[in-house]
């Protein structure tokens, strides 16, 4: 239970970072933290007590193993997050080039 609460706290830290920080790079880091928290939650959802990794080999008999499907999901979502992070960084670099700052309060050409 403590693990789940810590996972939720990690998610909230990421959300706080996205909502409150004024630096573009810190916002991107916050999005990363949120993604890690959700990935951690998915892995926790597939965990079973005292079981081992779901690798199947001919010479081994696996009695109890964790649910392998969440791990496949996490692989996919990590790759998606990687691409989102890259495109965000690319846009942030272009914004720095155009505005000369990473501060979102100074990047305000568009209003409402």
């Amino acid at each position: 239970m403590v693990t789940y609460i810590l996972c939720l706290m990690l998610f909230c830290v990421g959300l706080y970072c996205v909502l409150r920080k004024r630096n573009l790079i810190k916002i991107i880091i916050g999005i990363g933290i949120m993604g890690y928290a959700v990935n951690l939650f998915i892995i926790l959802a597939g965990y079973r007590a005292q079981s081992r990794a779901p690798i199947y080999a001919n010479d081994q008999i696996v009695a109890r193993m964790v649910d392998p499907l969440p791990q496949a999901m996490v692989m996919t979502s990590i790759v998606l997050e990687l691409s989102v992070t890259l495109i965000l960084i690319a846009i942030a670099i272009r914004i720095y080039e155009k505005y000369g700052t990473f501060d979102i309060t100074k990047i305000n050409k568009l209003k409402g």
């Binding site: 959300l15 495109i87 965000l88 846009i91 990047i107 568009l110």
Partner: peptide, 15 residues
């Protein structure tokens, strides 16, 4: 402006 808007949308949509 388009970079600003794209960044805004990208952050909100990713969340």
């Amino acid at each position: 402006e388009s970079f600003e808007a794209a960044f805004k949308y990208a952050v909100m949509s990713t969340v």
